[in-house]
């Protein structure tokens, strides 16, 4: 049978093509995100609401004249209890949002019905998660900036340290936080439901990582568990950088732990993704709702 069409498609594989595909995924995600305007309200209100619960509890416990706060300062070494709480709760919210957002990225595509049509293209499939992460990091950066501005304006919280070192701790936290999100994304697409896991992880962070209290208050066995959670180092490092004027050398143990946890969770996230991808081809689970 005569054909006039080239047996080759117009696609040109290569690193630049993969990079452009990654960029297209990130841009698509950002465009869709912007088309749900309720995000502005969430971005303005959430940074205040969650920490407020703990701040008001702390105020109530410190007594009418605030005399109990000296005990808090003695225990934590922090003069600014609001800043202390805000750092812990912000790290908790960051991890929580990543678990829901990046963790459910593929599942949401699957529910939308678009996962298979993405999967049919020759793009490197891990890009679908990486591309989703780009806009997520941008929105989380906005979230953290808004937190800093709102607590600066309404509660007079001021940094007592280097903002650049605080930023460095944040950057060092990204691989661990998002690696955990990648691992979750593969579990969610396989199990179809992972709310229990999300509740478990954020519960662990809430109890063991000292979001509103120092880890040293915990019993020994709980402190041991805390040492195995990267969020413990994020919270400790960010508090030290932002409010205790810590130097790079003082922050180094936290940074080192965060990078090691980051390498571990990114590797695990990628391996779980590969496993999920192979399993999906065997079982057809990508197309099942």
């Amino acid at each position: 049978m005569e054909t006039t069409l080239s047996p080759q498609s117009l696609g040109k594989p290569g690193f630049r093509s993969d990079l452009r595909a990654f960029w297209a995924i990130a841009r698509r995600e950002w465009t869709i995100f912007k088309r749900y305007p309720s995000w502005i309200i969430a971005l303005l209100i959430w940074p205040l609401i969650f920490p407020m619960m703990y701040i008001l509890t702390a105020r109530a416990l410190s007594g009418i004249d605030g005399s109990g706060l000296s005990v808090f300062t003695q225990t934590t070494g922090a003069n600014n209890f609001i800043g202390y709480i805000v750092v812990g709760t912000t790290v908790w919210m960051w991890q929580n949002i990543v678990l829901w957002d990046v963790g459910f990225a593929l599942r949401n595509e699957q529910m939308r019905g678009t996962l298979e049509s993405n999967w049919l293209s020759p793009t490197w499939r891990f890009s679908y998660l990486l591309g989703h992460t780009g806009p997520q990091i941008i929105t989380m950066t906005m979230f953290i900036l808004i937190t800093a501005i709102e607590f600066g304006l309404f509660f007079g919280v001021r940094l007592n340290g280097s903002p650049w070192l605080a930023l460095l701790v944040m950057l060092a936290s990204i691989p661990a936080i998002y690696g955990l999100g990648f691992a979750f994304a593969s579990i969610v697409i396989t199990a179809k439901e992972a709310h229990t896991f999300v509740f478990l992880v954020r519960g662990l962070v809430m109890i063991f990582c000292g979001i509103t209290f120092p880890v040293s208050l915990l019993p020994g066995w709980m402190q041991t568990i805390a040492q195995w959670l990267p969020q413990t180092y994020m919270i400790h490092g960010m508090r030290a950088a932002a409010f205790a004027n810590a130097s790079l050398a003082e922050l180094w143990p936290d940074l080192q732990a965060l990078l090691l946890f980051g390498a571990f969770w990114l590797t695990l996230g990628y391996l779980l993704f590969r496993w999920m991808e192979r399993r999906a081809r065997r079982t057809g689970s990508i197309g099942q709702y």
């Binding site: 498609s9 117009l10 696609g11 040109k12 594989p13 290569g14 093509s17 993969d18 452009r20 595909a21 960029w23 297209a24 995924i25 841009r27 698509r28 049509s117 993405n118 293209s121 020759p122 793009t123």
Partner: peptide
């Protein structure tokens, strides 16, 4: 279409 063109590695 622009999105899927990028996924199929079609030069810009």
């Amino acid at each position: 279409l622009e999105y899927f063109a990028a996924l199929y590695h079609i030069p810009q």
